[in-house]
């Protein structure tokens, strides 16, 4: 117990600083009071949640998962099932079980329910997949993503197949997203200092030694997998409420790679890296987009052609990784006095 307390006191600075950073961003949005800017910030918060979710599994276990966006998909559809007004549901998704069809739950019930649902499914998949390691595990998680995507893209009566599911109540207030992001960061932090998190990181760095010291690697991985799926599912549900429509192809390769890239650019093994990677890349993207629209500098308007933003962000990512192969933050975490080793 004393040990735990000492870990806590040594590392508590990280979540506190990250929380302050997020609070500053939320206040900025409030200060601006502009609809589109508010939406941009909501978007960044959701990204932070997803990337923190990825960090919980990938960062601690060292296994690259391509499958986590599948849980985001599960979460988004779950909250859609629960929160869409029953008359619309009966029309569009008649195959849902009766009690779901009748349900009209509020947003704040839908999101946690979605997270729990994603975690539950992750438990079943994880039971099978967590036996694998290395690149085989990566491919297996990818196959899981593709499997989820294929089922959701074709199960007409329950998911509406490729058609958009509409009628999800939209929430444009920044606070629920802000609170959820703080919760996600707290979960990420709590897991990384938990017994399981420490054991898993030990296994990531020295598999043989960890196994010899009694770490049951598949079991610890399964824990991380389920917890991260919980966060990813919640993130997906929030995405659904921020945009108001979901389709299966939103939650496929595009989102998978963007989220993975943000994690790797920030620093795969670091919670701070996950958060800062998202904030930084999102900021760069926003700046580039401003330039696409044209920015007045004195008398001249600076404009870059449409489409340059995507190319530029690709190049910037490559350059960051060339300079810092372990990501911007590397394996460290932010502390009061700069960085410390995680």
């Amino acid at each position: 117990m004393a040990e735990r307390a000492s870990i806590l006191s040594r590392t508590i600075a990280t979540p506190v600083i990250l929380g302050l950073l997020l609070t500053a961003i939320a206040l900025l949005a409030l200060l601006m009071g502009s609809g589109p800017f508010n939406q941009t910030i909501i978007d960044i918060f959701i990204r932070v949640i997803l990337v923190v979710g990825l960090y919980i599994f990938i960062g601690n276990s060292g296994v690259i998962s391509f499958g986590h966006i599948g849980f985001t998909c599960l979460g988004a559809y779950m909250t859609a099932w629960l929160t869409i007004p029953p008359p619309m549901k009966k029309m569009a998704l008649p195959g849902l079980p009766g009690f779901v069809l009748e349900a009209k739950l509020p947003f704040w019930v839908g999101v946690p329910a979605a997270a729990i649902f994603a975690a539950l499914i992750a438990f079943f998949f994880g039971k099978i997949l967590m036996r694998l390691s290395g690149i085989a595990a990566s491919i297996a998680t990818f196959a899981m993503l593709a499997l989820i995507n294929q089922i959701y893209s074709n199960w007409e009566d329950v998911t509406g197949a490729t058609s958009s599911v509409v009628g999800i109540p939209i929430n444009r207030s920044i606070w629920p997203y802000f609170v959820a992001t703080l919760v996600a960061v707290a979960i990420g932090y709590a897991y990384s200092i938990s017994r399981s998190g420490l054991a898993l990181r030990a296994a990531r760095d020295e598999a043989t030694a960890a196994a010899a010291s009694g770490v049951d690697i598949p079991k610890e991985r399964l824990r991380a997998f389920v917890i991260s799926a919980f966060v990813m599912g919640g993130g997906g549900a929030l995405y659904a409420h921020s945009v108001g429509v979901v389709t299966p192809d939103t939650f496929y390769l595009g989102l998978t790679f963007i989220s993975l890239s943000m994690l790797v650019v920030g620093g795969m093994g670091s919670l701070s890296g996950a958060v800062i990677g998202v904030v930084l890349l999102s900021t760069i993207i926003q700046i580039l987009r401003l330039f696409e629209k044209g920015v007045a500098l004195g008398d001249t308007v600076l404009t870059i052609p449409n489409g340059v933003q995507e190319i530029a962000i690709g190049v910037i990512m490559i350059v960051i990784l060339m300079r810092r192969p372990a990501g911007l933050i590397g394996n460290r975490e932010v502390g009061w006095k700069g960085f410390r080793k995680a």
């Binding site: 600083i17 900025l28 601006m32 589109p36 904030v279 930084l280 900021t283 401003l290 629209k293 911007l328």
Partner: peptide
């Protein structure tokens, strides 16, 4: 990469957005 640095960047962005929405 300090926090203030990043906030400064955020401010710069928001300033530009503000001028666009007026």
């Amino acid at each position: 990469m300090t926090l203030w640095h990043k906030l400064g960047m955020g401010m710069a962005v928001s300033g530009l957005v503000l001028s666009a929405t007026l």
